Computed example of a mutant assay.
Amino acid sequence: MKDLVAYITSGYPDKNFSIDLGLALGENGVDTLELGVPFSDPVADGPSIEAANHKALELGFKFQHLLEISEAIAPKVDTLWMGYFNSFYQQNMKLLLPKASQLGVNGLIIPDLPHEEALAYADLFKTNNLSNISFVAPTDSPQRIKEIVSDAQKFIYMVAYTGITGSGVSEDLQPFLASIKEFTNTPVYVGFGVNEKTAKEKVKGADGIIVGSAFINILLNDALSNTGKITQCASLANEIKEKINS
Results as ranks from 00 to 15, higher is better:
Glu117Gln: 10
Tyr161Pro: 00
Pro42Gly: 01
Leu173Pro: 00
Glu71Leu: 08
Thr227Phe: 09
Thr162Asn: 09
Asp3Tyr: 12
Ser141Arg: 08
Ala206Gly: 05
Glu58Met: 09
Met82Gly: 00
Asp222Lys: 13
Thr165Leu: 09
Val203Asn: 10
Leu96Pro: 02
Glu71Lys: 12
Lys55Ala: 12
Asp31Ile: 00
Pro142Ile: 01
Lys126Met: 12
Ser141Leu: 07
Leu119Tyr: 13
Ala199Trp: 03
Phe63Thr: 00
His54Pro: 00
Val203Lys: 07
Thr227Ile: 08
Asp222Val: 08
Pro75Thr: 13
Gly36Ala: 06
Ile218Leu: 12
Trp81Gly: 05
Tyr161Ala: 09
Leu25Gly: 07
Ala214Asp: 10
Ala122Asn: 13
Ala206Leu: 02
Asn53Glu: 10
Ile240Phe: 12
Leu97Arg: 12
Gly29Val: 01
Ala56Gln: 04
Ala223Gln: 15
Val188Pro: 00
His65Met: 14
Asn16Lys: 15
Gly228Asn: 08
Val194Lys: 12
Ala214Ile: 00
Asn221Val: 03
Leu95Ser: 15
Tyr189His: 10
Val43Gln: 13
Ser18Asn: 06
Phe61Ala: 04
Gly193His: 02
Asn92Leu: 13
His115Phe: 15
Thr32Arg: 14
Leu67Thr: 04
Ala152Arg: 01
Ile209Glu: 14
Lys2Tyr: 05
Glu171Tyr: 03
Gln90Gly: 12
His65Asp: 15
Leu21His: 09
Asp3Asn: 15
Ile240Leu: 13
Gly46Ile: 07
Ala56His: 08
Leu103His: 08
Asn195Trp: 11
Glu50Pro: 04
Ile209Gln: 11
Leu21Cys: 12
Asp45Asn: 09
Asn128Glu: 09
Phe88Tyr: 14
Asn195Pro: 10
Thr184Gln: 06
Ala214Tyr: 08
Thr127Pro: 11
Ala234Met: 02
Asn238Leu: 15
Gly22Asn: 00
Asp123Ala: 15
Ser246Trp: 06
Phe17Val: 03
Ser235Trp: 07
Asn132Phe: 15
Lys181Pro: 01
Glu58Cys: 03
Asn53Gln: 06
Val194Leu: 10
Ala44Asp: 10
Ser18Cys: 06
Met93Thr: 11
Ser179Arg: 03
Ile180Lys: 01
Asp151Val: 04
Glu239Thr: 10
Glu239Asp: 13
Asp31Cys: 10
Lys197Glu: 14
Gly83Pro: 01
Ser167Met: 14
Ala160Val: 01
Asp41Val: 11
Lys181Arg: 06
Gly22Asp: 03
Val169Ser: 10
Arg144Ser: 04
Thr227Cys: 06
Asn128Cys: 13
His54Thr: 09
Ser131Ala: 15
Asn238Asp: 14
Glu182Ala: 07
Asn129Ser: 15
Gly11Thr: 00
Pro175Trp: 01
Leu108Asn: 06
Asn28Asp: 12
Ser141Trp: 10
Ser10His: 07
Asn28Ala: 06
Glu182Ser: 12
Asn217Asp: 15
Ile210Arg: 07
Pro111Ile: 04
Glu242Leu: 15
Pro98Gly: 09
Phe85Gly: 03
Ser170Cys: 09
Ala74Tyr: 02
Thr186Glu: 09
Phe85Thr: 01
Pro114Val: 13
Phe88Val: 01
Ala214Asn: 09
Asp78Gly: 10
